[in-house]
Design a protein around this nucleic acid. Structure first.
Length: 572
DNA sequence: GCCGTTTTCGGCCCGACTGTTTTCAGTCG
């Protein structure tokens, strides 16, 4: 609706529809549910939704379509959604393309541009035509959002390169990456530099840059070969905090903070916090939040999900941090796969020590998992004995691995990642499970069960007294697989009743997801952040589990692998 | 079309950048 209204040059309505749309997209509750519970009135409680838009929503819920929208489409039958995705094309240009050339989708757009029909149009030109064709090519290769673990290393590399560049004082990553979101659309860099033109030239000629969308005096934007965009902003030193706050977002968080500024008779922009024309804060984020009468919320929770209220009352959570993690309990060894790239228990333990850990848990797959070779009862018992022996040698040689004092000893725990079978039983005999230091159980088969059946299955597994941890509780894989049919509230309740610890899996699963972590915390359910490493380097994925946990407001006390070994074992 | 602890009328975020109509409209974030 907003885009069609832009086309018709209706004043102010497009922004109103956009605002309502954003509000609906970010709504934590299903809109249909809201309507079911409270009707039109409840819909009008949604920010940006008034009488008219509420009626539109009602119409859509009842009839599956909206008459006004259908009328727009009749007048201008074109695939708006796909066309606006072409960089540089907005509603106004699309309207001209349709009226003059009958262009109505990407195919007809490409045909017209290739035939040279776009350039002569009023308001277009050779460059615009070329940009459209290039935009279409990029769109074909577009992979959507990237998993944070794919993109953070690239971002750090770019940051380092710019930091080394002559005349650069400071570089920071802002945007959704700074907030630790599980997927990232593009990268935002902020820079303080003596000579903005030079750093900008350097930025647009970085290796991997495929196209320069734009380059001016203070900002530049490029498309990378990998398929994402990077934006650079050069910021004056005195505005740095304001800029960092502004470009970190989220948008919803910024709207709220700006409103608080207005209530105090101030104005907040990317250049600073102003009283009239007088700048009252701008140098650091902390200064700005302080002048707004609030504590500075960690970037990971800036989503307008209660953090502003908490910050105003100075009741922000003290979020979990990598430095509190004392060990990783979901690690696979070469016992389950001798010819793969996996590492030995010794190599894994040494690596864990190098990360500053005090313990590691070996949790190889068990027998019924056919995708990877896995351990049966006999082999598990052998591994327990092996680890016992190894622990003795590690106690002796611990000092050689850089332990700061002789008093701390490193410990390897013997665990497993057992399978929860279709009926909820565990694929390893309970007598053997009892011999292990701890047991992780997870669903790895029959992922498409009905909810009731799946919940009964998981419940039975969690009730097994030998099961300590529920691995990747909802089964989703970011960008690849949805969660299986589970009821998270029920899982939390069972976890509370049985004392089962829920895993925050740091691999591409990122499961539990952030909102579930927050729910778990509020229910008093304990969690553990594991990497699910299949070789030692993957133990570095811990960082992503931490970010996820922080986004879920988790504190040190919510995460059990912050505990010293004795307390951890007592927990099990 | 939405919104209001200064307002139920009269505002609506705005700066940066590009290309083209060469002084500003369209797009983006």
């Amino acid at each position: 609706m907003a885009r069609y209204l832009y086309m018709e040059e209706v004043p102010f309505k497009p922004q109103a529809f956009e605002r309502a749309a954003e509000s609906l997209e970010s709504s934590k509750e299903d809109v249909k549910e809201i309507y079911k519970k409270g009707g039109l009135k409840a819909l009008m409680e949604i920010p940006g939704v008034g009488k008219s838009i509420a009626r539109h929503i009602e119409e859509y819920i009842k009839k599956g379509k909206i008459k006004d929208y259908e009328n727009f489409k009749k007048r201008m039958p074109l695939k708006m959604d796909e066309m606006v995705r072409v960089e540089g094309l907005g509603p106004k240009k699309i309207k001209v393309l349709y009226k003059e050339l009958g262009v109505h989708d990407l195919k007809t757009l490409e045909k017209a541009a290739k035939a040279g029909k776009v350039a002569p149009l009023f308001g277009f030109g050779e460059t615009t035509e070329k940009n459209i064709l290039q935009g279409l090519e990029f769109l074909k290769r577009d992979k959507g959002r990237f998993l944070i673990s794919e993109i953070l290393p690239i971002a750090r590399e770019v940051k380092e390169k710019m930091e080394k560049f002559k005349g650069v004082d400071k570089v920071d990553i802002a945007g959704s990456l700074r907030r630790g979101k599980e997927t990232i659309g593009d990268l935002d860099f902020l820079v303080i530099a003596e000579d903005s033109k030079r750093i900008m030239d350097f930025f647009v000629s970085l290796p991997g840059v495929e196209k320069v969308w734009g380059k001016g005096g203070t900002k530049a934007s490029v498309r990378m070969r990998y398929g994402f965009d990077m934006d650079l902003r050069v910021i004056p030193n005195k505005s740095y905090g304001a800029a960092l706050q502004y470009f970190t977002g989220s948008k919803e968080h910024n709207i709220i903070t700006r409103k608080i500024a207005i209530e105090k008779g101030l104005k907040l922009s990317e250049y600073g916090l102003f009283h009239g024309s007088k700048m009252v804060a701008s140098h650091t984020e902390e200064d700005i939040y302080k002048k707004l009468g609030m504590a500075c919320p960690p970037p990971e929770i800036r989503e307008n999900a209660g953090e502003v209220e908490a910050a105003l009352k100075n009741e922000l959570p003290k979020l979990i941090d990598l430095k509190y993690i004392k060990g990783d309990l979901h690690v696979h060894s070469n016992w389950q796969d001798t010819d793969g790239g996996k590492d030995s228990v010794e190599a894994l333990a040494k690596y864990a020590i190098s990360l500053g850990y005090e313990y590691i848990g070996i949790s190889d797959h068990t027998k019924t998992l056919k995708i990877e070779r896995s351990l049966n009862e006999k082999e598990l018992l052998e591994q327990v004995e092996y680890i016992k022996k190894l622990n003795k040698s590690f106690q002796i040689s611990n000092a050689t691995f850089g332990s700061p004092s002789g008093s701390r000893k490193f410990q390897i725990l013997a665990g497993c990642e057992a399978n929860i079978l279709k009926d909820g039983s565990i694929d390893i005999d309970d007598k053997v499970l009892e011999e292990l230091d701890y047991v992780i159980a997870g669903v790895h088969s029959f992922l498409k069960m009905e909810k009731a059946e799946m919940m009964a299955r998981i419940k039975k597994a969690m009730q097994n007294p030998n099961v300590d941890i529920l691995a990747h509780p909802t089964g989703r894989v970011v960008g690849q697989r949805d969660e299986y049919a589970v009821d998270i509230d029920e899982i939390l309740k069972i976890a509370k009743d049985t004392g089962t610890i829920l895993e925050i899996n740091s691999s591409s699963r990122l499961d539990l997801r952030d909102i579930y972590i927050r729910k778990a915390k509020n229910h008093g359910v304990k969690m553990i952040i594991n990497t699910d490493a299949h070789k030692k380097e993957q133990m570095n994925l811990m960082e992503y589990g931490i970010l996820q946990a922080r986004r879920g407001w988790a504190e040190k006390g919510d995460i059990i692998n912050t505990l010293p070994i004795e307390e951890l074992l007592r927990h099990f």
